[in-house]
Amino acid sequence: GFTKEQQRLGIPKDPRQWTETHVRDWVMWAVNEFSLKGVDFQKFCMNGAALCALGKDCFLELAPDFVGDILWEHLEILQKE
Rank of each mutant, 00 (worst) to 15 (best):
G1A: 10
G1S: 12
K4W: 07
E5Q: 09
E5P: 03
Q6M: 14
Q6G: 09
Q7V: 13
Q7H: 12
Q7G: 11
G10L: 06
G10T: 09
G10M: 08
P12E: 05
P12A: 04
K13T: 11
K13P: 14
P15H: 02
P15G: 01
P15W: 02
P15R: 00
R16D: 08
R16C: 12
Q17N: 13
T19L: 05
T19N: 08
T19M: 05
E20C: 09
E20R: 10
E20P: 11
T21C: 10
T21I: 08
T21F: 09
T21H: 11
V23R: 02
R24S: 08
R24A: 10
W26Y: 06
W26H: 01
M28L: 13
W29M: 03
W29S: 05
W29F: 06
A30P: 02
A30G: 07
V31H: 04
V31S: 10
N32G: 13
N32W: 05
E33N: 10
E33Q: 10
S35N: 08
S35C: 10
S35G: 14
L36F: 08
K37R: 10
K37M: 08
G38E: 09
G38L: 04
V39E: 03
D40T: 05
F41W: 10
Q42Y: 06
K43W: 01
K43V: 04
K43H: 07
K43T: 06
C45Y: 12
M46S: 02
M46Q: 05
N47R: 07
N47Q: 06
N47S: 14
N47W: 00
G48L: 00
A49M: 11
A49T: 11
A50Q: 14
A50S: 13
A50W: 03
A50T: 13
L51K: 00
C52E: 03
A53S: 14
A53D: 15
G55T: 15
K56N: 03
K56C: 01
C58H: 15
C58F: 10
F59L: 06
L60Y: 11
E61H: 10
E61C: 07
L62E: 03
A63T: 09
P64I: 01
D65V: 12
F66E: 14
D69E: 12
D69H: 08
D69F: 06
D69L: 11
I70W: 05
I70C: 10
I70H: 10
L71W: 00
L71N: 09
L71I: 01
E73N: 09
H74F: 05
L75S: 02
E76H: 10
I77W: 12
